[in-house]
Write a protein that binds this DNA or RNA. Structure first.
Length: 566
RNA sequence: GGGCUCGUAGCCUAGCCAGGACAGGGCGACAGCCUCCUAAGCUGUAGAUCAGGGGUUCGAAUCCCCUCGGGCCCGCCA
């Protein structure tokens, strides 16, 4: 499917053949490089051969190039030596043919593998803030990428319905009498959480009462668990609403308490007790992590309290056991603060012989004035960011076009929310982000609107030309001779490879980079190649169509609307 | 005290895992481009001791060691 794979395979087998027939068999790094445009499409460096062949790299490269030239197949158009490299040029006609064919009729075949991808799993004690928003955006984009690859993906939100955060909220709702005016229920609830937290810190008695709530939950007390649910439900609804607005839908919500109630947490504890790595401190059971390369002040991973009740991580193990039975691949999107906990869970799962999840970690989003904190109220909520983005997008639309208001609002919503998703996903998850409004609301350059705009331009051309459809094979691909045509086709052709890489590395950031590159190449084509009315109109329309489709694919995978006009 | 991670122009960022041909983009700055398929676009200029030092190598932003700086973690919390 991937044209570059065919090309690469042909090169690699010829390179190996050339080496063994000229210099004999050698163990080498058979890696190809992506050289500068002018030097070719792939390059093989010959420096590593110099010591064994006892010749200069450039002589080796020219001997190899000569051999390959005489034996080349259909994918290599040209091969030449330059500066100790063998440079390969792809057959552009074949590339164009296969690329157009892929775009117009290609889809990944369905796989049998089932994926459970857990993301967000935020404490439902208030609205989602921008720091936490990195999680659903990474998670949802990954889910889309795996679905595109043919996997059967279910996204899950693990609801911590028996934890301290929700317990604090519940206590607040029961004991604090105050009026809070807020547009959304989650924003109203967080005020109670904040107030309760403050009271808990000052007053031992409050702390005690909250502790009682938690204890009851862990004992599986139905009445308390129901109260907890009533408390967090509205907050969770608010989170779901915010997520919907940025085009994220979570398939299922799994409550932590179910694993206490159905006894699987107890099962985990009993099973782990049999392991040689456990120990006791009083009655509290722990796993000694020293055996697993964890050192430091405390390498005891506690599974139960003194009173035998379970801890968060213990329940998380039970959850993973459950997930593991329902999927072939488990993916968890987690904040970097969960790195140790994830390691502990992994060790426990190994001991139990269960499936190990792939963890995707992301670094924190902070504000210029410091860490975000819901408790201290030093946060930017996702809802506020969305409102601001949409409002600004609306002003921009109004500035540029005369449209009826409903249409302008629609475009503004898609531009604003797209910009947010893009500006977050484009940064490698491992890098920490300092949130700045002007960056988060960027509508130019490396941004969603830039890409959406290129898509809209494609649509506009197709509309103007009255274009319907091109069937594969209908176009003579040897007519693509303009550098911008060829460049654009090459970028389109590399789309499958990019998706593969995102999947292999569980990193959606490459897709964002790719989408920008594609849009940018299209803009260059747009500048230099007249489509409508040119003598190559048919051929160029096919490229525009392929670009539009690929941009749309990329945007959709990023969870961003591919607008037809803006 | 221990561990993980990041450090690339004024700012943001790609490249690092699998070392190789002038370190790519973007924002901002400056100078330009709309009688021509939407200027959320395009062109050009300026701007980089690849945090610092040592080592491995024919060759290091990339691998190894040390130092410095930022983030995160080390609870019978979640």
């Amino acid at each position: 499917m991937d044209p570059y794979e065919y090309f690469r395979q042909e090169i690699l087998s010829l390179v190996k053949e050339a080496v063994s027939s000229i210099y004999g068999k050698h163990k080498l790094a058979w890696t190809l490089e992506k050289p500068l445009e002018e030097f070719g499409d792939f390059a093989f460096p010959c420096f590593q051969l110099a010591p064994v062949a006892k010749k200069s790299p450039s002589l080796i490269a020219s001997e190899m190039a000569e051999f390959i030239e005489q034996n080349k197949g259909e994918w290599i158009e040209k091969v030449e030596e330059k500066g100790g490299y063998v440079n390969f040029f792809i057959n552009k006609r074949k590339l164009a043919e296969l690329t157009l064919k892929n775009v117009f009729e290609g889809r990944e075949e369905k796989k049998r593998e089932r994926v459970i991808l857990e993301h967000t799993s935020a404490n439902p004690n208030g609205p989602l803030h921008v720091g936490r928003a990195r999680n659903p955006i990474i998670g949802d984009t990954l889910a889309r990428i795996f679905r595109w690859g043919g996997y059967d993906v279910e996204t899950q939100f693990y609801v911590d319905d028996m934890g301290k955060q929700v317990a604090i909220l519940l206590w607040g709702l029961k004991n604090i009498d105050m009026e809070v005016e807020e547009k959304k229920e989650d924003h109203r609830l967080v005020a109670f959480y904040q107030k309760a937290y403050e009271m808990m810190e000052r007053d031992e008695k409050v702390k005690e009462e909250i502790g009682q709530i938690i204890k009851k939950c862990e004992e599986g007390d139905e009445k308390t668990l129901n109260e907890m649910k009533e408390a967090y439900e509205k907050a969770l609804e608010g989170i779901v609403e915010s997520l919907e607005r940025i085009n994220i839908k979570i398939d299922s919500f799994v409550e932590e308490s179910r694993f206490v109630i159905d006894g699987s947490v107890q099962y985990v504890i009993e099973e782990l007790k049999k392991s040689e790595f456990v120990g006791y401190e009083g009655n509290a059971l722990y796993l000694d992590m020293e055996h697993f390369g964890i050192h430091g002040r405390n390498k005891k991973f506690f599974l139960t309290r003194e009173d035998g009740t379970s801890l968060y991580a213990t329940r998380d193990i039970a959850y993973h056991l459950w997930k593991g039975k329902r999927a072939d691949l488990l993916i968890n999107v987690l904040g970097e603060d969960h790195k140790l906990e994830a390691k502990l869970v992994e060790v426990a799962l190994k001991i139990l012989g269960a499936k190990i999840p792939v963890a995707v970690f992301y670094s924190f989003v902070s504000l210029p004035e410091g860490k975000m904190s819901t408790r201290r109220g030093r946060v930017v909520y996702l809802d506020d960011l969305i409102d601001e983005a949409v409002e600004r997008a609306y002003d921009e639309v109004r500035k540029r076009r005369e449209l009826d208001d409903a249409k302008a609002r629609f475009i503004a919503e898609k531009v604003g929310t797209g910009a947010i998703r893009y500006n977050i996903i484009k940064v490698n998850p491992e890098k920490a982000i300092t949130f700045r409004w002007e960056e988060a609301l960027n509508f130019e350059g490396e941004s969603a609107p830039f890409i959406q705009y290129a898509h809209a331009r494609c649509c506009s051309i197709m509309k103007k030309a009255g274009y319907t459809e091109t069937k594969p094979g209908e176009i003579d691909c040897s007519n693509y001779t303009h550098p911008q045509e060829i460049n654009l086709i090459k970028i389109i052709a590399s789309f499958p490879g990019v998706i593969k890489r995102c999947q292999n590395e569980f990193n959606p950031a490459y897709l964002a980079e790719y989408a920008h590159k594609l849009a940018s190449s299209f803009n260059a084509f747009y500048r230099d190649c007249q489509v409508v009315g040119s003598e190559k109109e048919r051929e160029r329309l096919a490229i525009v169509h392929a670009t539009r489709q690929t941009l749309k694919n990329a945007l959709t995978l990023l969870g961003i609307e591919a607008l037809e006009e803006m």
